[in-house]
C-alpha cells in the first residue's frame, strides 16, 4: 500500500497572544506522532512567510487590523479546512474589549493624551497596519469550518480535534475538554 501523503497544516496568530500556539506545543511528545501524519506550511514553527495550498489552516486571534484581514484571506484561499483556535479567534477575546471605544478615542489616548506622554503623535507609517473600527471574531470575516474554544484550549483538546479530523470524524469535545477559559 502506498504511504498516504502527509497533510499540510498552516498556523498563524492574528490579534492573539500566541498562547494557543504554546498550547499546540504542549501536545508534547504526541507532536512526534502528529508529525508522522502532517507537515507544517506557514507557521511560527517554520517561519515560512506565506501560506501555500494546505489541507488545514489553524488561526489564533481575532481580526483587529488590515493586515489580519489579508492573512486571514490568504489562509482561507489556500486551506481546505480552516480552524479557529482560542477565545480571540472565536469571539474577539481580550482585544475585542476595546469595541465599545472608538478608534479615534483609542489612538488619541495611546499616542497623544496619555499621562506622561510628551510630544506624542499618531504614527502614519504605511508599514503599520491600520486598525479596524472593531475587533471581529474570524468567522465574521471568512467562512470557518471548525472551532476549538479555550483561552487557550488545552493540548488535549487540540489533540482531540486534530486526531478526529485526521480520522475523518467531526471533531467533538466532551466534558473537561470543552472550555471557554
Amino acid at each position: 500500500m502506498p504511504v498516504p501523503a502527509k497533510l499540510r497544516v498552516a498556523t498563524t496568530s492574528l490579534a492573539g497572544c500566541f498562547g494557543c500556539h504554546m498550547s499546540i506545543l504542549d501536545i508534547d511528545e504526541r507532536l512526534l506522532a502528529l508529525l508522522e501524519l502532517i507537515e507544517f506550511d506557514r507557521s511560527p514553527l517554520t517561519d515560512i512567510k506565506h501560506c501555500g495550498p494546505c489541507d488545514i489552516g489553524i488561526i489564533e486571534g481575532g481580526v483587529c487590523n488590515a493586515e489580519n484581514v489579508h492573512v486571514l484571506r490568504e489562509f482561507r484561499a489556500n486551506c481546505k479546512t480552516l480552524i479557529a483556535i482560542g477565545a480571540c479567534a472565536i469571539n474577539g477575546g481580550l482585544p475585542a474589549q476595546r469595541n465599545h471605544l472608538s478608534v479615534s478615542t483609542i489612538l488619541n489616548e495611546v499616542y497623544q493624551t496619555q499621562h506622561g506622554l510628551v510630544g506624542g503623535f499618531i504614527p502614519n507609517d504605511p508599514e503599520l497596519p491600520l486598525l479596524l473600527d472593531k475587533v471581529h471574531p474570524i468567522h465574521e470575516v471568512v467562512k470557518i469550518d471548525y472551532f476549538i474554544p479555550g483561552c487557550p484550549p488545552s493540548a488535549d483538546a487540540i489533540w482531540k480535534v486534530l486526531t478526529d479530523l485526521l480520522a475523518g470524524k467531526t471533531p467533538e469535545l466532551g466534558h473537561g475538554l470543552i472550555s471557554y477559559d
Partner: peptide, 18 residues
Amino acid sequence: ALSQARQMTGRDDAGAHL
C-alpha cells in the same frame, strides 16, 4: 471599517484600504 483610522493617521495609500 478602516475609515476612522485613515482619518486619524491621514493615510490614504493602497495599504490603507481593503
